Computed example of a mutant assay.
Amino acid sequence: MLRCAVLDDYQGVALGLADWSRVRATSFREHFTGLDDLVAAIHDCEIVVIMRERTPFTAEVFARLPSLRLLITSGARNAAIDLAAARAHGVTVCGTASGSAPPVELTWALILGLTRHLLPEATAFRSDGPWQSTIGGDLHGRTLGLLGLGKIGSRMAVIGRAFGMDVVAWSEHLTEERALECGARLVSKDALLAESDVVSVHLVLSDRTRGLVGERELSLMKPAAYLVNTSRAAIVDQDALVSALRAGRIAGAGLDVFEVEPLPAGHAFRTLPNVLATPHLGYVTELNYRTYFREAVEDIDAFLAGAPIRVIP
């Protein structure tokens, strides 16, 4: 039987959510921060299953894992995999489906948590603190700005309209017709940032979108506006965001993605009072996990049968 490692199984649930009986599977709950530790743990594995982008697979990683034949990632794309290096080392890379509903739901949890000050109010409630100390912001009648109107952004637009919000959207190739189909108005990026009470990021990270929201863009936002990013951290200049939050140039930020994960202890995002953050939970739901690991096993079975499926080229 081939040996299979399941990496970054933080909750320790992977082996119970699918039938791994055709391989000798080992789950690792701890995140390997050093390459030497990673290689020592999985050097003899022919198959590795990774969760999203938690552990990058670079050319150096592939070079040090000569036994590796199949790499499976949850989701249909993974920017942390060097696909050219995988091909050069004869490693097949496959993916799985990933639902768009869970990240939409978490994004709205962050928006509601920020605007209604749920964290400070809940903390005060549990610590016998003041009974009501904040005044919540409204969504009805306010403007939701969506940077990106794809699978997730379009769902965001529907829910924004249900809250009674005016929804505006921008992306590089978005058309007015597509925006209208989703219940949004197409505006320029600068107009979106200036008009919106909540700006939510739903773009794919690429060379064009990396650093898309920087110091200049943040300066266009209203002082009472919130920025929410559940997409990819690098789309927003992290240092510029910290500066804007510290100076109160925007009201706050809801964050689920970070350039280094797990986020180092003592990082500003862990301490700023106007940040509501979660540890990259957007896709972490029971249904999504069941899909990930069931389809990972399907990928393994197909590979063993000599006909790989869901191959990422």
Rank of each mutant, 00 (worst) to 15 (best):
C4A: 15
D9V: 08
L15M: 06
L17M: 12
T26M: 06
E30K: 14
E30T: 13
F32V: 13
D36Y: 12
A41I: 13
D44L: 09
D44K: 11
C45V: 06
E46A: 15
I47W: 07
E53I: 05
P56A: 13
R64N: 14
L68G: 05
L68H: 09
S74L: 00
A80K: 15
L83F: 15
R87L: 12
V93P: 03
C94D: 02
E105W: 05
T107G: 12
I111W: 01
P120E: 09
A122V: 14
A122E: 14
A124Y: 11
D128A: 15
G136P: 01
R155H: 09
A157H: 01
A162R: 01
D166F: 03
A169I: 14
H173T: 14
G183A: 03
R185S: 11
K189T: 04
L193A: 09
L193E: 07
E195R: 14
E195C: 07
D197C: 10
V199E: 07
L205Y: 09
S206V: 00
D207F: 07
R210E: 06
V213T: 08
E215I: 01
E217T: 04
L218E: 08
S243T: 07
R246Y: 02
R246I: 00
G254M: 02
D256T: 05
F258S: 13
E261H: 14
L263G: 12
L272T: 04
P273N: 08
G282S: 07
Y283W: 12
V284G: 00
V284M: 00
T285E: 02
E295A: 01
E298G: 01
F303E: 02
